[in-house]
Amino acid sequence: MIDLGQHWEFIAATYAGSVLVIGALIGWTWSASRRARTRVARLEAARKARKA
């Protein structure tokens, strides 16, 4: 790893904060997508069962 100089704590905070926010954004997007897909699959199955 390179030496980040005398202001390393600001650089570290910048990247740590960015990783945190982007990680949360990806996690939220993925979990919302998965929840929606699971729910729609359940509803589609129920509709098919009603029609059968």
Partner: peptide
Amino acid sequence: LVRMRTEVTRRRIRSLELAQ
């Protein structure tokens, strides 16, 4: 793109729930 797909799916859920 993923969030748009999720929103389309949510709207489908709403119409399926109404039909149910």
